[in-house]
Amino acid sequence: MTDPTTPTETLLAEDLHKRFGPIHAVQGVRLRLQAGEIYALVGPDGAGKTTLMRLLCGVLQPDRGRVSIMGYDILREADRAREHVGYLSQRFSLYEELTVIENLRFFAEVRGLSRQEWFPRSMEVLEFVGLAPFLHRRAGHLSGGMKQKLGLATALVHRPRVLLLDEPTNGVDPITRQEFWQLLLRLSQEEAITVLVTTPYMDEAVRAHTVGFMRGGRILMQGAPEALKTRFPYAVLQIRGRPLREWREHLLAQDWVHGALRFGDRIHVWVAPQQVKPAKKRVVRLARDLGLYLEKVREIPPQLEDVFLAQLHMEEAGNPAQGEKT
């Protein structure tokens, strides 16, 4: 099935496979990203996220399948394709002894920007990420969040249409992360840049237009968060009460309960969507009959975590609490 590339399609990956000896790191990945789309790939360490990123930017050659960027094949038309890709690897290296502007100049020249071009463009991206006041500070003397922004600036200096970011906010604090995402959302809004970002965290992924869940080299499900939630077959009741362990045990024993996830001060219970009202009553009755304290029960929209766990549950048809298999 080869649909023609539409004009707004910026990144296309078809049936990508990559093996390293016995390890099938990437198994049949397909991606189709549009201009201005932010796509978050969620997966644990070892899921194949980084390998996939390397295949997408042409650093690694796939065993099978192909990648194109802005319609150019990443291997056969490598130069033209790479012109349009900015890649920020997980351990991106800045030159710590060089200043902010010297770092940008270096990356601009590597990307083939001319003398006339590099300075105005560098100033533009530094302005954008908020580092213009720190032009002459050595990269080694920047805070973690500022280094992250400088990394982003170096990946943007050649005006890519597609930005690949491998766990870009790993280890930064919530405020810096929020600022970093504001930058990504602006790039998407103002310049219709496509951003593919990997993360192991759901609180990060929900910011993207599209979310894909990757495990064992495969993308298990992908879609817009709202659309994924509509695929979730249950309604979610949030129960606050005490003691939560007993609550969970008793809930799991009920035939109308399809799942019960514990959080710090509450439980999320999965029930059939048409059963929300009777289920709430049953919860109240359970509290009374068993002498459990119930503070509040209310229906909440499913969280992406619920969706992901339910999907895994169905695929493994086992116990979700067992987690990853070795």
Binding site: V42, G43, P44, D45, A47, N170, P200, M202, F213, R215, L261, R262, L304, E305, F308, L309, L312, P320, A321, Q322, G323, E324
Partner: peptide, 13 residues
Amino acid sequence: SGVDPPTRRAFWD
């Protein structure tokens, strides 16, 4: 750090 939601869930259980 570095694990996905199901694995985090299993750890927290």
